[in-house]
Structure formats: C-alpha cells, structure tokens
C-alpha cells in the first residue's frame, strides 16, 4: 500500500460522500445522472463478489462494504426518496451503448474464463465509461452545480492517483495489471476536459457553464 493508492481511495470515498451530502442537504438530486449512479452500483456489485469468496485484508473488506453502501444509498436517493427532483428528461444517455460493448469485451479479453473473473473484468471496463451519462447530462444542460463539479473532481483525482499508484507498483513490485491499467488510462482521459473547466472556472469562483 503506497501513498498514491491510499490517497486515491480517500478521494474516491470523498467523492461519494460529497455526492450524498449534496443530495441529503439540498433534498434534491437535480443535475445528477441516475444512470451513472446505477452503473457505479453495478461496477461495485460485480467487482466485489470476492467479498464472499476471498479474504484480502480488513481494510479491503471494510472499504468495499462502505463503497457498496454509499453507492446503493445514492441510487435509492435518486430513484426512491428524492425521485421528484430527479431530472430524468436530461438523463437520456442510452445505457445499451455502454453495456453491450463492455459485456462483449469482458468475455473476449479477460485473464481467465471463469464467472468471477469475467464479472471482475466487466466491472473494470464498465467503470472506465460509467461517468459518461453524467458528462453527457452536463453537456446537454450546459451547466453543473458547483458541488457536483467537486464530486467529479474527486472522482477524477482518484483515477489519476491510481495511475500514479500503478506506476509506483510497476517500479517497486514489478506489478502490472494490464486490464486495470489500460481501462484506468481510458477512464482518466474522460476527465481531462472536465479538469480543464474545473481549474479555469470553478476554482476561480465561477459556476461551471458551457457556452
């Protein structure tokens, strides 16, 4: 466990807490893509099935349970408790455009043709594109609440720190997980455009709005 990895996990957790706090305090999930949140819940569910089969560490187990709980709570807030505030009109990304290729690819390109391994691979590929419905929603409405941009910033920061973690592990332990690294690079690229807007607008106190 290196410093990039732990900071990455903390950023990831912070992102999920920021999102939950936004919904809980404003009693609204306006501007949040329910579809992205469903995809993240699917990502955690399919990746963390090893909770039932393998014990890795207390840290690993506890974090997985927290991530699952945060993710499902968020989905419940959007489609249950605060569904009246959910902007389903603008959350119009077609999920089959992501799910079909990701499912196909996880059957074709995996480490082992076993159910658990294919589901793990599916979760890695799906995570790399799960934010797209959210980014699509922002590009459609042309704006995002500042707190939503903080959420996206910490999610992107988590991805970037994981890249640093893999570079570190490659040099210190010769560890290299090709599927995770390639997907992680793809995922991080999706945040680049957003990072630019975040630094040039949000950090200068302006609201994120697209021309």
């Amino acid at each position: 466990m290196n410093v990039f990895r732990i900071l990455g996990d903390v950023s990831h957790l912070l992102a999920m807490i920021i999102l939950l706090l936004k919904i809980w305090r404003s009693k609204s999930c306006a501007g949040i893509s329910g579809k992205s949140q469903i995809l993240f819940a699917l990502v955690f569910t399919t990746r963390y099935l090893d909770l039932l089969t393998n014990f890795i560490s207390i840290y690993n187990t506890v974090m997985k349970i927290i991530f699952l709980a945060c993710s499902y709570t968020t989905v419940y807030m959007i489609y249950g408790k605060y569904r009246n505030t959910f902007d389903s009109e603008n959350d119009s990304f077609r999920l089959e455009f992501l799910l079909v290729p990701v499912t196909g690819l996880s059957f074709l390109e995996n480490y082992n043709f076993t159910p658990l391994e294919i589901l793990w691979t599916f979760s890695i590929y799906l995570e790399s594109v799960a934010i797209l419905p959210q980014l699509f929603m922002i590009s459609k409405t042309g704006e995002a609440e500042t707190i939503t941009t903080h959420y996206l910033f910490f999610l992107g920061l988590y991805r970037t720190l994981y890249l640093a973690n893999w570079i570190w592990r490659y040099h210190t332990e010769s560890f290299y997980d090709q599927i995770a690294v390639v997907s992680g690079v793809v995922q991080t690229i999706f945040y680049c455009d957003f990072f630019y807007l975040y630094v040039t607008k949000v950090l200068k106190g302006k609201k994120l709005s697209l021309p």
Partner: peptide, 10 residues
C-alpha cells in the same frame, strides 16, 4: 482459480 485471486485494489 480462486486460490490465485490476488486483486487487492478497490
């Protein structure tokens, strides 16, 4: 093989 499961990242 589940015995080789070494995925410690989240």
């Amino acid at each position: 093989d589940l015995d080789d499961w070494d995925k410690d990242e989240l």
